[in-house]
Every structure is written in C-alpha cells, then in structure tokens.
Amino acid sequence: MREPFEEAVQRRGGTVLKVCRAVLGPGPDADDAWQETFIAALRQWPELDPLMPLEPWLVRVAGRKAIDVVRARNRRAVPLGELPERGPAVGSIASDAVEHGVEVWSAVAALPERQRLAVAYHYLGGLPHADTAALIGGSPESVRRASSDGIRALRRQWTPERMGAE
C-alpha cells in the first residue's frame, strides 16, 4: 500500500527541492517547479503502482518540470526599460559565490547546462547514470563524464584555501 500523499511530500520534498534548485537556481522558479511536481504527483497518486520506488519517480517528474521552466524562460521576452550593465562571466559567478557567502546553489547554477543537469539528477536526485541519460539525452557514459566534470568544477571552486580556511 502506498503511503499517504502528505507523508510522501514531507519525506521527499527536500530531495525534490534540491533537484529543482540545482536546475533552476534558488528562487521562485525552483519553488514553482517543486509545487508543479507535487501537483502532478497528486494527480497520478491513485494510479501509481504501490511497488514502484517513489523517490526516483518524483525526481524524474521534478526534472521535467524544471526543464519546462527553462524552456519557458527561453520562449518569453523580458521587457527592459534600459539595458543592464554587463554582469560577470558565467565562469566567475560560482567562484565569487564562496567569497560573497552565496550558497552552493549559485555555483551549481553556474555550471554548463549538461553538467548542471547531470549533477542535479545523479548526485542530488540519486538517479543512476542510465536514468539520467534517458532524461537529458546521451549515453550513460557521457552523463557520467558530465556529472564528474561538474563535481570537479565545484570542488575547484569550493577548496578550503578559497573559502579562507587555513
């Protein structure tokens, strides 16, 4: 028998939020993707196989909802009163995150898209590389490489020397 929906949200909500934040960064878009994930889960709840592992399924749904937000961002125009000043290069955003006390989510968000998705699904969502490859495309080996490259980049940015530790 499947656990009550409310209990599933409490037990697995943190993992789902980690995946959403890893793909979208912290903020309202990640919160919206989290909410959409559980709305979709609630709709499917009566038909779900009680023997199906719930957390990997929720991680997949969260990933798809987060990708929907990314696609929607790319489709809609953002009106600007005046042009913004040129911000820092993407590569420097994550390295500045430590210096300015920004959470790790900023560093993850600064990764190239494929690395960010691979890290989010595999390390934060707990999906095997084969399942991650099915979600983002490519082979399990290419996803393994992308997640490894992403973790390596994060480790370079979050070394004790750069964080001011002795």
Rank of each mutant, 00 (worst) to 15 (best):
T159E: 05
G13L: 04
D29A: 15
L83S: 06
V98A: 13
A133W: 10
G137S: 02
K65D: 12
F38A: 00
P88Y: 09
R73G: 14
S95F: 06
A66D: 05
A110I: 09
V16S: 11
A94R: 00
Q115E: 15
R155L: 11
A107M: 01
A146M: 13
E82M: 05
R162W: 06
G138K: 09
V69I: 10
G81M: 06
Q10E: 15
A94H: 01
L51H: 05
R114Y: 06
S92I: 09
A40P: 09
V16E: 01
G91S: 12
S92N: 13
Y123P: 08
A134H: 01
A8W: 10
A118E: 03
P160F: 09
M163S: 03
V19N: 03
A72I: 08
P88L: 12
W158V: 04
E166S: 15
A97T: 00
A33R: 11
A8D: 07
S142N: 04
R43K: 15
R86T: 04
H122Y: 04
G87A: 01
G25E: 00
I39F: 07
D149S: 12
E85D: 11
W105C: 10
R11Q: 08
R75Q: 15
Q10D: 15
E113M: 02
D68I: 02
A120F: 11
L111W: 06
S95Q: 02
G164L: 11
R60F: 10
F5S: 15
V61E: 03
E82H: 10
T37M: 00
S106Q: 06
P88I: 02
W45S: 04
D32P: 01
G150Y: 00
V70E: 04
F38T: 02
R75A: 12
L154F: 06
T15I: 14
A77Q: 08
R155C: 01
A97M: 07
G101L: 10
L58N: 13
R116G: 05
D96C: 03
T37S: 05
R43M: 13
L127C: 05
R144D: 07
I39H: 00
T132R: 07
G91E: 14
P53G: 06
P50T: 08
A8P: 07
G14Y: 07
G125E: 06
A110N: 07
R21I: 11
P140E: 05
K18M: 12
R21H: 08
W57H: 02
G27F: 13
W158S: 12
F5C: 11
E103N: 09
R11P: 12
Q157P: 01
P4Y: 13
W34Y: 13
V102K: 00
G13Q: 12
G125D: 00
